[in-house]
């Protein structure tokens, strides 16, 4: 568990920032664009990035980041205990990685790795599979506990909106990070060319 504290603090801060941004669009946004919240779920990017790059050490911090917002920041908006749904959401990424490992695609960081974490297309595959697991099992738990999330009963539309929201939100975060971090990314590329 080397660097557990560093990984946990980084993961918690990153995930919390994305959750607050998403909650802002969902709860504080104007009524003309109500789709912005459910159809762009940014924190899924934190789940994918932190678990893919930091490993399973990031799970406790991700879980804490998922539950502190609904419990402390907007308790009136999320009128249910988020423990089990949040745990399912966080565990969707390890489940996706384990599924791919089951089929022989082991996660690594070299060109020879069947699942290369430096290749964005492979990370996109993990994102899609984990979004699918999250949409399916989180809604299953919501329906089992009879939670009317956002004052709606669980239906196929909600499952689809979770799936699209996770994928689209992750894509937006990845693209924004790639644009914002361009100067660093350029210098990283030049360094790797020199060495």
């Amino acid at each position: 568990m080397k660097n557990f504290l560093t990984v946990s603090v980084t993961t918690f801060l990153f995930s919390s920032i994305l959750w607050v941004l998403w909650a802002f669009f969902l709860l504080q946004g104007d009524d003309n664009s109500p789709w912005l919240g459910p159809l762009l779920y940014y924190p899924h990017a934190a789940r994918v990035l932190c678990i893919v790059y930091f490993g399973y050490r990031a799970i406790p911090a991700l879980f804490l980041a998922e539950i502190w917002g609904p419990l402390l920041l907007f308790p009136e908006a999320f009128n249910f205990y988020p423990y089990i749904p949040s745990l399912i959401s966080v565990m969707s990424v390890p489940a996706a990685i384990l599924t791919l490992e089951f089929f022989g695609f082991t996660l690594g960081s070299t060109q020879d790795s069947p699942l290369n974490k430096t290749n964005y297309k492979h990370v996109a595959l993990i994102t899609v599979i984990s979004a699918f697991y999250n949409a399916l099992f989180k809604n299953l738990s919501l329906s089992l506990f009879e939670v009317n999330y956002q004052e709606h009963l669980v239906d196929i539309l909600q499952v689809c909106s979770f799936l699209i929201g996770d994928i689209a939100g992750t894509a937006v975060v990845f693209i924004l990070l790639a644009i914002v971090l361009r100067p660093i990314l350029r210098s990283t590329n030049q360094d790797s060319r020199i060495h």
Binding site: L49, Y53, S109, T118, N119, Y120, F174, L177, A178, R182
Partner: peptide
């Protein structure tokens, strides 16, 4: 801390791939 920075470098390499694919002028 070396492992932590290696993980961050891997994430930056992945983002560099997206930046390159976007082909922003």
């Amino acid at each position: 801390m070396k492992k932590f920075f290696n993980d961050i470098a891997d994430a930056l390499n992945m983002l560099a791939g997206i930046e390159s694919a976007l082909n922003i002028k």
